[in-house]
Structures are given as C-alpha cells and as structure tokens.
Simulated assay, not measured.
Amino acid sequence: MAPTPDQYQVALTALRDDADKWDQCGNDLATAKGSAESLDLEALHFSYVGDKLGVTALYQQFQARMVALLSEGNAMSTRVATALRNSAQTYQQEEEAGVHRMNNVW
C-alpha cells in the first residue's frame, strides 16, 4: 500500500530534519577539532623528566590522532547529511513525476 500524502510529507520532513542534525554534529566536531588543534603543550609543560621519558612526544601523537579523528567525523557527518538531502530530493522528484504521469493518464 502506498503512503498517504501526509505520510509522504512526514517522511520527507524527517529526512531533511535528520540531515540538519547531522550537519550540526559535523559543526560540533569541527569546533572540537579547532579546540584540539590549539591545545599545544610542549616540553616545558611536562617538566624536564617528563619530556625525557617521552611524555611530550606521546601527547603530540595523541593530539594529532584526536585532530584526525575529529576531522574524519566532521567529513563523515557532512556526507551523511548530503546523502539524506539527496535522498529526500530524489523521493520528492520521483513522487512529483509519478503524480504528473498519473494526472496525464486521467
């Protein structure tokens, strides 16, 4: 059974609302990435002994990994949002084309 026009509109709205949420998630991850990039700690922050034991290098590796993961999360969230919007647009176009074909039959 085909969806009613109201159900169809609800589904389209839900797809677009979900896309907005994924965009916001991506924006939040981009903000967190910016914060992570700015947290530069150097040898003087870990003490001489800490630096000699490798704490500074370990921190820099951890920071670089976090920045990379946050960047990947941002990119993935943006792609999900785009895919949801594209799906909504395709469904809408197909529905409109189907309605147009049906009207031409009558």
Rank of each mutant, 00 (worst) to 15 (best):
M1T: 08
P3Q: 11
T4I: 04
T4Q: 03
P5V: 09
D6V: 13
D6K: 14
Q7C: 02
Y8G: 04
Q9V: 08
Q9E: 14
Q9P: 00
A11Q: 12
L12I: 12
L12T: 10
L12N: 08
L12A: 08
T13C: 01
A14E: 08
A14T: 13
L15Y: 06
L15I: 01
D17N: 11
D20I: 08
D20G: 13
W22R: 03
C25G: 06
N27M: 13
D28K: 15
L29P: 04
L29T: 02
L29Y: 09
L29H: 07
A30Y: 05
A32P: 02
A32N: 04
K33S: 06
K33A: 07
K33R: 15
G34I: 00
S35T: 15
S38Y: 00
L39A: 15
D40K: 15
D40Y: 04
L41T: 00
A43F: 00
L44F: 13
L44A: 14
Y48L: 11
V49L: 15
V49W: 12
G50E: 06
D51R: 00
K52D: 01
L53N: 07
G54V: 04
V55K: 10
V55Y: 05
V55C: 04
T56S: 05
T56E: 06
A57E: 11
L58H: 14
Y59W: 12
Q60D: 10
Q60P: 05
Q61V: 06
Q61H: 09
Q63N: 07
M66D: 03
M66N: 08
V67M: 00
L69P: 01
L69T: 12
L70W: 02
E72Y: 01
G73S: 03
A75I: 02
S77C: 14
T78Y: 01
V80K: 02
A81W: 02
A81Q: 04
A83S: 12
L84Q: 11
N86H: 03
N86G: 05
N86Q: 14
S87P: 00
A88R: 04
A88W: 01
Q89G: 12
Q89E: 14
Y91L: 15
Q92C: 03
Q93G: 11
E94I: 05
E94M: 10
A97M: 09
G98D: 09
V99E: 11
R101V: 05
M102Q: 09
N103T: 06
N104E: 10
V105T: 10
V105L: 15
